[in-house]
Design a protein around this nucleic acid. Sequence first.
DNA 1: TCAAGCTAAATTGTCGACAACCGACAATCC
DNA 2: GGATTGTCGGTTGTCGACAATTTAGCTTGA
Lengths: 234, 234
Amino acid sequence: MTSRSERLFQPLARDALSQQIARMLTDAIVSGKLKPGDRVAESVIAKEVGVSRAPVREAARLLESTGLLVSHANRGFFVRTIDAEDIDSLYELRLCIEREAAARVVREGKVAGIIDRLRAQIEDMVGMSEENQLILQIGVDLQFHRLIVESSGNKRFLAAFDKLASEIQACTAMIETVFDEPGLVARNHYLIIDALLSGDEDEARAALDYHIGVARETVVGRFRKLEAEEPAKR
Amino acid sequence: MTSRSERLFQPLARDALSQQIARMLTDAIVSGKLKPGDRVAESVIAKEVGVSRAPVREAARLLESTGLLVSHANRGFFVRTIDAEDIDSLYELRLCIEREAAARVVREGKVAGIIDRLRAQIEDMVGMSEENQLILQIGVDLQFHRLIVESSGNKRFLAAFDKLASEIQACTAMIETVFDEPGLVARNHYLIIDALLSGDEDEARAALDYHIGVARETVVGRFRKLEAEEPAKR
DNA sequence: TCAAGCTAAATTGTCGACAACCGACAATCC
DNA sequence: GGATTGTCGGTTGTCGACAATTTAGCTTGA
């Protein structure tokens, strides 16, 4: 038989139902189809998807551990409500992790290995900003930062970052216009690259302090405005 | 009716089976009855405890999210194996969080509110060190640090710290003698208190850099030795 | 002897059903 | 009328059983 290198079929995604459902729910929350405070009843989801409650329940517990859902005993799951203070805490923790991760990347000389990918991601962001694909842009933005955290080599940094990232994506999706000038935001990532290339740990830290600080102020600010307009959110 | 301010009954602790089982399992792991790599079969635990597999499964998933267990698809749960590098990452993340938490406590002038409790906890530690109650001492030690993180006011700091703390407790329990001089370790916490009282953020950061740095070196060192002696741990 | 294939036991993934529980409304009593 | 108590629908917590998957032991063949 001729050695056929390209396969006819992809192995069909056959991970547990709970995983698929978890992805579904995550998408629904991140995209805003499910809003903060909404009830997520096991039986309802199970009926819609056509499975029993067990995998739905498991998926919900998974999202609970990532912070997208909260559960009250004997009352079920709800999409987590977020207030401005929460988001502020979120960004503060993110900053702690990311600045040290960046410092480690510089210290251990791992910048060269990722610089090309980082640059490519910035270009992607710029392209998306021009097409007003904001949700997508935020996704790539987080990928950019994730890559830095990942190459720090500290697995716990990455795990913690991933948890935060899903929440950041969820709450930025709740804001109509996240940034006034998306293109500028995208290009600002070049400053981070410059700092990484400088080879100075503290410069890398400072770059992220600034970058994440700006994002923090912007997003938290938007949220405070949102809260002022709509006082009964919970 | 006379306004009865003090209540007659406390609300009885009535948490779900899964929670009780989660506690059981946590204790078993932290105390070393379950060792890294050990299988945790749902059916076995369920039979022993006398409940169905559902709550056991849920408890296991809970511990998975805290990092005490790992699960492989269709193969079940196992007590997480930890190597020296893991623990190093653990302490690095812990340091990131705790130093900024301490800085915030100082910046926002919340030291006075907790200083008495911190002192009391140190005395507890000293007492336990004299009675060679090392496991207990580590528990109070973590409580001390937790109190600082808690009063930072950043809820995510606390959540992240709690996750790390359970793992720290688990892996310190695996080492026969954690510290050479437990009494000294206990009293060293006074240095942290001094730094907090100084009112200088950076001094607080430095104190924790030092304190956690020492712990990190000690524990990681012990673990590397353990690995050298016992190469096939996984 | 050893590798590959097969079989059986054990374990997880999923299911449908029942019991316990919560929240809200209706009924009752003072 | 106001507050307490009883009831009801709906949801979660738990259960035992079945299907799918993995693992280990056994057999077979070279």
